[in-house]
Design a protein around this nucleic acid. Structure first.
Lengths: 214, 214
DNA sequence: CCCCTAAACTAGCGGCGTAAGTTTTCCGGC
DNA sequence: GCCGGAAAACTTACGCCGCTAGTTTAGGGG
């Protein structure tokens, strides 16, 4: 086969197929040959549309980030907006757990990630936070959500009773497969609320006290 | 060469060499052949001491986790202990940033990681937290530290002015190489203090109020 | 002393990302 | 209306990867 009547591939189709393979069979299952086969094509043909495999993975990662909802920053106060954003962010990662390890390391060259950071930063500054503080808050929340998604979806603890011998405070009961999910939920909720509570105190101290708001 | 007079390799030497390669040249630079060369040996010889490459990486990761200091749980109150632990944890990861992406995904089959989790959990329960809450707190802090280390050391933002076109709230000034470090520090400190502040409030509400302590 | 195991070796398999060069099709300009 | 170049598929192949299999020899226990 040479050049076909009409293109077999385009970036969108490639990204969708890649996401499907990753979602269904895990990140290591995605090779260029495997992905090409999924699209009815030979491996190197992908390089007519992307320069490297990492570029494909970046596009997949960004397509996930693009589903994060930051609309709350336009309508709600900063605390509620942060809460909505963090939960949406976590939900987006939970929907595609296998790409998370790549997504969280990746650099900032992704449009959706930049747009998200921009919206969050703008919302916080509008609420009265200093630009520097807004940067810190956005970063801290990203840290927490990224870490939460990564650790949670990595199936951190296995249900092997022998592992817990000699660790008197670790209860296997909290770790076995079924409970793991509720532990993750509880830890995320607790941590998020604690963060927001702490930020509210800092706000009262450093922003509201100076009458800088609107 | 057949079996040498005295062994050329042992697990300790392999782990140290692996850590050196990863620290110096990055995680992708570590291949079994490269590591073996570093030890004056052929690639497959490593498999006399480790079953898989991942087993080597797990050992490297655990050797880093082993440097985290949890002693504060024996002497300080729970808030101070959490603060010391989180900072030590972050310092340990910062000392070996290239292993972090592997470390944070990895499962709990690592002795040092289990021992750390056990100490933290025990310290919190001793302070009056319920076992379930203690699990959540330990997990939330791990999320935050892991996320912080991962995102920070990933060189998230490059200093390419074009990236910031169209994102009015993002200041390149906060992102260029030199500033990145202080942004990370600020975000970590702010987030950690906010978390601790929020947990203190929760403590007053759910633990101290019931007079459960000792 | 003998034999079994341990710890190195060499050879090689299948898979990976991707570079190079080929073929055919489409499209814009003379 | 042709024609030249870009586009998009192809085939081939290179060097690296993790790892297996089988071989050789040294060390240590019965």
């Amino acid at each position: 086969m040479a050049r076909p009547r009409q293109p077999l591939l385009d970036r969108r189709r490639i990204v969708e197929a890649a996401r499907a393979v990753i979602d269904g069979e895990g990140l290591p299952a995605l090779s260029t040959r495997r992905l090409a086969a999924e699209l009815g094509v030979q491996g190197p043909s992908l390089y007519n549309h992307f320069a490297t495999k990492d570029e494909i993975l970046d596009a997949v990662a960004d397509s996930v980030t693009a589903t994060v909802d930051t609309a709350a920053f336009a309508t709600l106060d900063w605390q509620e907006a942060l809460r909505h954003w963090a939960c949406s962010y976590r939900r987006a990662l939970a929907a595609h757990p296998n790409i998370v390890p790549y997504l969280v390391q990746g650099p900032g060259r992704r449009p959706a990630a930049l747009a998200m950071a921009d919206t969050v930063h703008g919302g916080l500054v509008r609420a009265g936070w200093s630009p520097a503080r807004a940067t810190h808050i956005g970063a801290a929340l990203r840290y927490f959500v990224a870490g939460s998604a990564l650790v949670s979806f990595a199936r951190g603890f296995l249900d092997d009773p022998e592992l817990y011998a000699g660790h008197p405070h670790l209860h296997q009961a909290h770790r076995i497969a079924g409970r793991q999910h509720s532990v993750d939920e509880g830890a995320f909720t607790l941590g998020l609320e604690a963060l927001l509570h702490g930020l509210a105190a800092e706000y009262d101290r450093s922003v509201a006290a100076q009458g800088v708001q609107r």
